[in-house]
Amino acid sequence: MSAAAFRFPDALAGLPPAAPLDAGPVPPPGADPRARAWAVLRAVPDPEVPAVSVVDLGIVRGAEPLPGGGVRVTLTPTYSGCPATEAIERSVREALDAAGLGPVEVALRRAPAWTTDWITPEGRDRLRAAGIAPPGPAEAGGDGLAPLRFFARGADAPSVQCPRCASPRTEQLAAFGATACKSLWRCLACREPFEHFKPL
């Protein structure tokens, strides 16, 4: 928890930082600071899914240059308990500072709640290339009114396309995966297991 005892960032602190993503050139100093900030942020990898950037995932909701210099970044956390939230804030700060765009103000905004519908088309391509099936449209009924449903199996199960061979013949192995945002699947055509970014 934040101040006294357990600090989430340390769960990730021992890992080497993921390499910046190739997201195209950053405009030179002197160019429009907003465009520069977005270009820098597009290369900041998500600490838990480093194949995609924090912009690809839709976590960055705004990057506004401040009148007195510096930039204000608005982030929307993904899951309530996501241990990467603080690490994301730190890597955003470090990347913008390193590009000379600081001082950096980070605002965390909870509402509207993050949804996988905010993952960009480029982000979806990158997930697929990394062997992670991107999410389909977030389900309606997230407001809590829909009647209880069970995880569908067999013919009723929603189809998730295998990120390797593109076959729709896949099945869920486990509803939870290595991170809060993913479930585990396997392809019945190429027999490879893969992760699926859960629609949320």
Binding site: P77, Y79, S80, R110, A111, P112, A113, W114, G141, G142, D143, G144, L148, R149, F150, F151, A175, F176, K198, L200
Partner: peptide, 13 residues
């Protein structure tokens, strides 16, 4: 607004 989606997933599981 965030938690309701998580609770739904937990409930279903």
């Amino acid at each position: 607004a965030k938690a309701v989606k998580e609770a739904r997933y937990h409930q279903r599981h």
